[in-house]
Design a protein around this nucleic acid. Sequence first.
DNA 1: GCACACTGTGTGCGGCATACACAGACCATA
DNA 2: TATGGTCTGTGTATGCCGCACACAGTGTGC
Lengths: 244, 244
Amino acid sequence: MDESELPRVLQQLWGIEGRSRPGPKPAFHISDIARAAIKLADVGGLAAVSMSKVAAELGFTTMSLYRYVDAKDDLYVVMLEHAFGDPPALDPETGWRARITAWAEAFRDGLRRHPWILQIPVQEPPLSPNQLAWMESGLDAFAGTPLTPPDRLSAMLLVNIYVRGTAQLTAHMLTDPDAVRAADRLYTERLTMLATPDRFPGIAATLEQPLDEGYAGDFDAGEFTFGLDTVLDGIEARITRAPR
Amino acid sequence: MDESELPRVLQQLWGIEGRSRPGPKPAFHISDIARAAIKLADVGGLAAVSMSKVAAELGFTTMSLYRYVDAKDDLYVVMLEHAFGDPPALDPETGWRARITAWAEAFRDGLRRHPWILQIPVQEPPLSPNQLAWMESGLDAFAGTPLTPPDRLSAMLLVNIYVRGTAQLTAHMLTDPDAVRAADRLYTERLTMLATPDRFPGIAATLEQPLDEGYAGDFDAGEFTFGLDTVLDGIEARITRAPR
DNA sequence: GCACACTGTGTGCGGCATACACAGACCATA
DNA sequence: TATGGTCTGTGTATGCCGCACACAGTGTGC
């Protein structure tokens, strides 16, 4: 098992540098690529990120990027690694619920800052440093509970999935709040038209409620924590059931 | 509010046909497009679906598809609508837990049959007939519970998110079980190498367990229902708390 | 029977990821 | 100090892709 087996991008991200080599010095670093790509994605979504645009942003040619990144997918890995800041520092004094909640909110904030993250096709489980740091942080939230390590992993993944899922519903990838509201109204209108009470009584009943929040609505902070609490109640049930 | 405001694809899917019009009869129907596209995606993933390939599969030119579909995204809508069969018939005799579990498993089976569904970029909430039927079916699972309609929607979405999320983790888009196992072993190796106990004690502890299932592992049926039960425990807590 | 809306087709454009050959930069070794 | 080999960024080219647009033929409502 050799470190050199790691894909080049991961080697770069982990700072595994080969011995000094002949040839010209690299003109930049993958973190520069990440910065440029993230800048583009923040403005125009993931669709605005192309090899040529990133290269132009850096002032280099398209093909030069391939000296740092094997393929477009690697670019996504690099972006993801740099988009999130450090995982939150969790107060060991508080209970697991407060800790995992803080973790979930930090995660959600990251997704809100960089909505394009949700557009990245998930291919492989994470192996990059900061991603693992977030994993570790999430697992750490369950320190002191009787959950076994695999159960902690499952619980963390459950929260992770919840945050991702709700963020997906919320965003529609739109950042403009007016556009979101307009799209929301349009959706409700169309749904009201199509989901007639005779054929879709359940959906129609949902629409009758005064605030039509929910699926298409503005999934605000209150909704978020309410749903998260439901998930945590389930985890709590498992904790209570676990042998101490 | 006029039906003609609906995007063309939705009009087609709902079978809203304008009065008989001049001009040649259409040579095929969007369902033919769906069938061809799904066939391609089942074999080669979503990347194998292009306008030209779908058209070739049908024996027509690329541009002919645009008479039925406004853009590539509409093609995804059509594929999604046809990929799932009818929603499961839920036994009203059984409890809500059994019903929503059956619904979740049917949903999971659909995703297993057509893994490319998870690759489709989510853009808009569903408005097509079969999608609404699945929504209705999911809401119906909570019939008889004291949950309000919006709460039923939230609960259904929670389960929906869970199934999608776990399917995402499981698949890695791979259908070949050997490839999955190999990728799994490789991932565990690399993770063991990178997540050293000093820096990542939580992750390392997870890896020490005999079966390294979980994140990268084979998320089998047992894991699925176990995690689902956790979610349902959370919903049950809410049901118990709800005013009757 | 005729006007005209609508059909499928052909061509073409701009953008994309990326393969490959190349000229120059630089370190390890002699 | 000289030099060989390796690595750098560049230029060019290929084959896809989604899709705009003009066109010739079709068939219904008047």
